[in-house]
Computed example of a mutant assay.
Amino acid sequence: MREGVMPADPERAAALELIHRLREVALRLELAIGEFARTAGLHATDVRALIRLLDAERAGLEATPGWLAGQLGMTSQATTAVIHRLEAAGHIERLRSRSDGRSSRLQVSDSAVALGWQFFGPLLERLITTTEALTHDQQTVLSDYLTTVAEAID
């Protein structure tokens, strides 16, 4: 075995194996997102934007173009191009901000949500079933772990 491929310390090796499994899940999700983008005629960045906008909605956040640019790690000009594509396709709406009448907020359209459920619904149902099979304590540990991993990546 090559140097550095697998740590000699069993605990470190187990942690690395878990990270590799997490990476595998991330890659498989990315492939599903790519397939959705192709079938829906979208850029992969457009799908990431839609996901971020839906995340904001679930969290009760007002998603502005500037907020979206930060979430995507893109310039405001590049984000504007994404917003224009999504608006033209009918996937998002630009609405007046609730907090600042001079700015706009972005909202995913009902038709885009329906399109996403049509494609991802069966996968989400399988993932929900898998997650429901875990005990509450197991779900809590996983949730805490994934939160910490996301923070470590940032």
Rank of each mutant, 00 (worst) to 15 (best):
G101R: 15
Q138L: 08
A40F: 09
A112C: 09
A49N: 10
E125I: 00
L50W: 08
L127A: 15
I128H: 05
A69E: 06
I153W: 02
T45E: 14
G101N: 08
S103I: 00
H43C: 07
A56M: 10
I33T: 01
L16M: 14
D100C: 07
L127G: 06
A88P: 03
I153A: 14
A49C: 05
Y145D: 00
A150S: 13
V47I: 06
A32F: 02
L123P: 04
V149P: 02
F36L: 06
A15P: 02
H43R: 15
R48N: 13
E3C: 03
Q71K: 14
L86Q: 09
S76A: 09
G41W: 03
T80A: 15
L61T: 11
G70D: 12
E151Y: 08
L86H: 10
D46A: 13
G4R: 12
L42Q: 04
S104P: 03
G73A: 09
I128K: 03
H136Y: 01
E57C: 07
G41F: 00
E125C: 00
V25I: 10
L142D: 00
H136K: 03
L123A: 03
R21F: 04
A78G: 13
F119V: 00
S103M: 00
L27E: 00
L115I: 01
A44S: 11
A59K: 06
L16S: 02
A49I: 09
A44I: 01
A40M: 09
T130F: 08
A8R: 13
A88W: 08
A56D: 15
G34D: 01
A150H: 11
G90H: 11
L42D: 02
T75G: 15
L146S: 12
D100V: 01
A152W: 06
L134T: 00
H20K: 06
A56P: 14
E3T: 05
D154T: 03
T129V: 06
P122L: 00
R58P: 02
A59G: 05
G101K: 14
P7H: 09
T39I: 02
M6E: 12
A8I: 05
I33L: 09
Q107K: 10
T75N: 12
L127K: 09
E17C: 07
R58V: 07
V108E: 03
D9F: 09
A78M: 10
G60Y: 11
I92R: 13
V82N: 08
A63Y: 08
A114H: 02
A152M: 03
R94T: 15
A89G: 12
